[in-house]
C-alpha cells in the first residue's frame, strides 16, 4: 500500500540489566497510513514510551526495522538520517521539562531551523517562527518570552510548534495531554485534530487514558508487556473487544452515570504485571487471565484475525464480549 507512511517490523528493544534483559518492546508490528491516527494504549510500563523513543530515533532498536515512507531508519546514517528524521517528530509528555528554561520561546521553536539550516533561509526564520506560534494559537509577539511565563497548555502548544517546524508527515505524541488539566486537554486535542486536517499529518498517539484515545484515534493498538495484543478500528476495539486484557481495560473506564453503578460488567484483574525482564512463557497475559488454559503456557498466540475475532487479536480464545 502506497499511502503507508510508517511501518515497523518485529521491532525489539531490550535493555540490559543485572538480571538479564528487560524486554521493553518485544516484537511490535505497526502500520500508519497518511492522515491517520493510531492510538497506542496500555498501562504503565508496557513499553509505550520506549516504542515512541524508538520511532523518533532516541533509542536504537535491538532488532527489527522502522520504515518511514519506505526508508529504513535503522540503517540510515549521518546526513541521510538527519534528513529522514525531519519526517517524524515527537510531542513530549511533560511540557514543564521538555522546554529549555534558558531559551526564549522563539529560540526554542527556531532551533529546528538552525539544526536543519537548509529548510528555511536565515532571513525568513523569524517570520517562520511567528507563523508557527500563530498556527498553534499563541501570540506571535510572545516569541521573546521564556517558557516559565506560559501555562502548561501553552507550553504544550510550544512543544507542538517545535515539532511542526520541520513540516513532518508523522507526529509521535507520547502522552501529550496527560500532564494537563482536563479542560486544557480538550483544547490541545482539538488543536492536534485541526493541525491534522490542515497539514495532512499522521499521528501515533500514545496514552493511557482510553477516553482520550477513543476521541482522537482512527485505529487502536493495545499493548501489554512489550507486545501488541489487539489492534483494530476504534469502534471495533471499544465496542467489540476480543482480547481479555482489552476487555478488562475498557471495563475499568469510569462511566459518569451513577445509575449504572454496580450494574456494569466490571472485570477486575488479579495480580501484578509480571516483570518484563522475565515474562511468562506463551501468552504473556495468561498469569492474570480468567480464560487461561494449558495451551496458553505452551504456545504464544499470534496477533491475527481469528474465527471469533474480526480484527487482529493475540488470544487463543479471542471472542467478542461487549463491556460497558
Amino acid at each position: 500500500m502506497s499511502d503507508v507512511v510508517l511501518q515497523t517490523r518485529s521491532l525489539v528493544k531490550h535493555f540490559k540489566s543485572r538480571d538479564g534483559a528487560v524486554r521493553a518492546v518485544d516484537g511490535v508490528d505497526l502500520q500508519l497510513r497518511r492522515g491517520e491516527t493510531l492510538g497506542v494504549v496500555g498501562e504503565s510500563g508496557c513499553g509505550k514510551s520506549t516504542l515512541a523513543k524508538l520511532l523518533v530515533g532516541l533509542e536504537k532498536p535491538t532488532s527489527g526495522a522502522i520504515a518511514v515512507r519506505g526508508q529504513d531508519m535503522v540503517r540510515l546514517k549521518g546526513g541521510d538520517l538527519r534528513r529522514a528524521r525531519r519526517n517524524i517528530q515527537m510531542v513530549m509528555q511533560d511540557p514543564y521539562t521538555s522546554l529549555n528554561p534558558r531559551m526564549t520561546v522563539g529560540d526554542i521553536i527556531g532551533e529546528p531551523f538552525e539544526i536543519h539550516s537548509d529548510v528555511v533561509p536565515k532571513g525568513k526564520r523569524r517570520q517562520a517562527v511567528q507563523d508557527l506560534l500563530d498556527t498553534v494559537g499563541l501570540n506571535p509577539d510572545h516569541a521573546g518570552r521564556y517558557p516559565h511565563q506560559f501555562s502548561g497548555g501553552q507550553r504544550q502548544r510550544i512543544g507542538i510548534a517545535r515539532a511542526l517546524a520541520l513540516k513532518p508527515e508523522i507526529l509521535v505524541c507520547d502522552e501529550p495531554v496527560s500532564a494537563l488539566d482536563v479542560s486544557i486537554q480538550a483544547q490541545v486535542i482539538n488543536l492536534l485534530e485541526r493541525l491534522q486536517d490542515d497539514f495532512g499529518l499522521s499521528y501515533i498517539f500514545i496514552a493511557h487514558d482510553l477516553s482520550v484515545v477513543r476521541h482522537i484515534a482512527d485505529r487502536v493498538a493495545v499493548m501489554y508487556l512489550g507486545k501488541i495484543v489487539e489492534q483494530g478500528h476504534d469502534v471495533a476495539i471499544y465496542d467489540q473487544p476480543t482480547h481479555p486484557y482489552t476487555q478488562a481495560l475498557i471495563s475499568a473506564v469510569p462511566v459518569p452515570d451513577p445509575r449504572l453503578r454496580g450494574r456494569r460488567d466490571q472485570i477486575v484483574l488479579e495480580g501484578d504485571v509480571p516483570s518484563p525482564a522475565d515474562p511468562p512463557s506463551g501468552c504473556r497475559f495468561r498469569t492474570r487471565c480468567w480464560k487461561s488454559q494449558h495451551v496458553c503456557g505452551e504456545q504464544e498466540p499470534v496477533l491475527q484475525i481469528r474465527e471469533r475475532s474480526p480484527h487482529p487479536s493475540a488470544c487463543h480464545f479471542a471472542e467478542v464480549r461487549r463491556v460497558r
Binding site: 523518533v56 525531519r86 521539562t97 529549555n100 532551533e111 512543544g159 520541520l166
Partner: peptide
C-alpha cells in the same frame, strides 16, 4: 532532561547539546 532529548531528536549534534 527532556529538552535535551527533544534537541537530540531534532538532530542536534553534541556541540549544540552541550553548549546550548
Amino acid at each position: 532532561q527532556d529538552y535535551v532529548a527533544a534537541a537530540r531528536m531534532l538532530g542536534a549534534g553534541p556541540a549544540r547539546l552541550v553548549f546550548r
